[in-house]
Every structure is written in C-alpha cells, then in structure tokens.
Amino acid sequence: MSRIAGRFQQLAEQGRTALIPYIVAGDPSCDVTVPLMHRMVKSGADIIELGVPFSDPMSEGPVIQQGHERALENGMCLSQVLALVKEFRKFDDTTPLLLMGYANPVMHMGYAAFADAASAAGLDALLTVDIPPEEVEEINAELQRVGMDNIFLVAPTTPEERIVRIAAGASGFIYYVSLKGVTGAGHLDVNEVAQRLAAIRSHSTLPLAVGFGIKDADSAKTVAAVADGVVVGSALVDVMAQTVSRGGSSGQAIDAVAGLLDEIRKGIDSTAS
C-alpha cells in the first residue's frame, strides 16, 4: 500500500480528517523548507504538499505567486526540490509527500527522468495543475511505472461524465477545488462543496481532499465535516511572508506557520467523529 493510501486508511480508522499543508519549496529561503516540513508534521500535518516554483503559475492567487517568485529568486528548481524531499526522508520515512506544480518543469526534465528521480528521492505523488486527463497518458505511464500516485483535480465546473473519467484514472486521493478561482480566493461555499463531494463519491471510493479558499480553523472545520482531507496553502505562505517582511527570522517564520497549523488542526479535530 502506498504511503498516501496507508495514511488515509489510518485516519479513517481514527475518524479523523487529513490536514494537508502546502508550502512553496525554497520560500522564503531554501534552508527553511526541510525544517519547516518536519515542524509541520509535529503540528499535525498528515500529508505535505510541496509547491514547485514556476515562472508562470497561472492558477495561483497573488500570495502564492509571490511565494513562487521568491523561491525562484532563491534559485529553487525542480531537481533541488527533489533534493529537499530526499533530505526530509532522512528523518521521516512515513509522512506522505506530494509535489504540486506545473507541467513545463516536469516535461523539461523528462517524464521518465522525473519519475526515476522523484521515486528515488522518496516522493509519493505528483499533482500538475495544467495536465488534465486529456493530456495525462504519457506522464501517468511513467508515474505508474515507479508506483507514484497522480493526483487529479475536480473543479466546481467539472461535469459528471468527466468526474467518471477522472475517477477511473485517479489514485491516492482526489483533490476537489472548492471554488471557481485561483488559490487563496475568498468565496468558499461549504454547502456547494458538500453536494459536489457527494457527486464525486458516487463514482469513486478514493479519499476526497478539498483545497482553495481554506484559510483558518473555522473554514477548515466546516470543510473537514464533509471532506477526508483539508488543504491549506495561501494562509501559510502569507503568514511566513508577513513574518519575514516584519524582519522576523527563519525560526520565527517556522513558528508562525506551526502556530497557525496547530489552530487549524484543533479546528479539524473538533469535528472528529
């Protein structure tokens, strides 16, 4: 069983919802990322989603766009992100790791070369925002060859026949984009999310995580009541950026993320059945 499937099974047995924090690798600095990942695990992260910085992050709102820009200025690149994964694995062999990024850096490395390097580094899954099911065949073959999950998005606009198609190719979990918009947007409608998750569940037994627009303990708590996993990204990237811009140290930036994550974990667990 993959780390991701194992983790969701374990959580299901405990009646808990997965907390999936997202950070941009190399933001606010390259040496923060691995210590931050370990700290997030301590604060209750079940799966870590590591953003691969890209020059043109078309699905990101301003907060995460700026995270990508900072990381690129720091020289972060895909091969270095995989090196960070490897470093993290030295001290944590259990927390599932997911890369989230855009097609071009992965394609440029070569799908086969990426799959080999990512698998060797200890990565569990890949989510490429701009590779929909129509374009996924080539990369999926490589990910499957090395036993990695490919995480698919389902959007509020996805019609039912596409949900069926996505469910057929998905593994690990399905990521439901909670709103029409970019990351960090603020118009999440929980009733609508609940209805859409029910529709997806009628076609898939995979766990369903929800992301985009979840920014604090309250919003995490409401989403956790209907989802198997909650993804939080912009709020974490933002709290780090704010700490650094006020002159805070790397350690204080890590503390700030951990503090917010602790609150969100509490919010989620307050719904535990």
């Binding site: 925002v129 701009d130 374009e135 606009t157 029409k180």
Partner: peptide
C-alpha cells in the same frame, strides 16, 4: 489543452 480542470468544461 494544458489548463486547470476548472476551465476544461
């Protein structure tokens, strides 16, 4: 068609 799922429909 390399775009986010939200735009596919």
């Amino acid at each position: 068609k390399f775009v986010a799922e939200t735009l596919m429909a």
